[in-house]
């Protein structure tokens, strides 16, 4: 009995090797699945849901200004502290009032300051892409970009100013749209 089972196990062992060779041979004949990166890129449907670095969402009517209300919630919630909002206080000019400056007007003018966003700095080097800032934004002024092909020579290249980025994007977009409108008109 033991002799029989031994020869049986030897036969099975040798057969298992042949099965292994068969499987690799089958895979050898199948097409490759590599994406040849510089020449090909990942299909865009696979990038659905991809979270790149954050970007500002513009106001629906004005593509040059973000929805951001400068509440600083994103900067405080960020675990890595990589968001910094640079703001300045600007007095509000009230044009509708009469030109004479009474004392009352001066008092109110002192009080009426408006915060203005100068820069929205993101240090992408320290970002861990957790998404807490996007989730916590009270006016939905943040979203994830789809920038996937990021490479640079220094870490300074990844310190973004998202406001400047938004404006540059809007400029490009409007420059594209303008000639179309002109041709239509």
């Amino acid at each position: 009995m033991s002799n029989y089972s031994k020869s049986q196990s030897i036969r099975e062992g040798i057969w298992s090797l042949i099965v292994g060779l068969k499987i690799t041979a089958k895979n050898f004949l199948k097409p490759t699945i590599t994406v040849h990166y510089p020449r090909e890129t990942v299909p865009t449907d696979k990038l659905e849901g991809y979270r790149g670095h954050i970007e500002l969402v513009p106001k629906p009517k004005d593509p040059f200004t973000p929805k951001c209300i400068m509440c600083n919630l994103c900067a405080t919630v960020c675990p890595s502290g990589c968001i910094k909002l640079v703001t300045v206080k600007e007095p509000i000019e009230e044009k509708s009032k009469s030109g004479t400056n009474t004392q009352e007007d001066k008092k109110t003018a002192k009080k009426k300051f408006k915060k203005k966003l100068v820069a929205f700095e993101l240090n992408y080097n320290y970002c861990s892409l957790c998404g807490l800032c996007v989730q916590n934004c009270s006016v939905k002024s943040l979203r994830f970009s789809k920038d996937i092909y990021l490479a640079g020579y220094s870490k300074e290249e990844f310190e973004y100013d998202l406001l400047a980025r938004l404006r540059a994007k809007a400029k490009v977009k409007s420059a594209k749209e303008l000639p179309q409108k002109n041709s239509e008109g």
Partner: peptide, 13 residues
């Protein structure tokens, strides 16, 4: 090349 194709890669390219 053979190793690559067995593993569904193109090998050196």
């Amino acid at each position: 090349k053979v190793a690559g194709h067995i593993q569904r890669r193109p090998g050196p390219f």
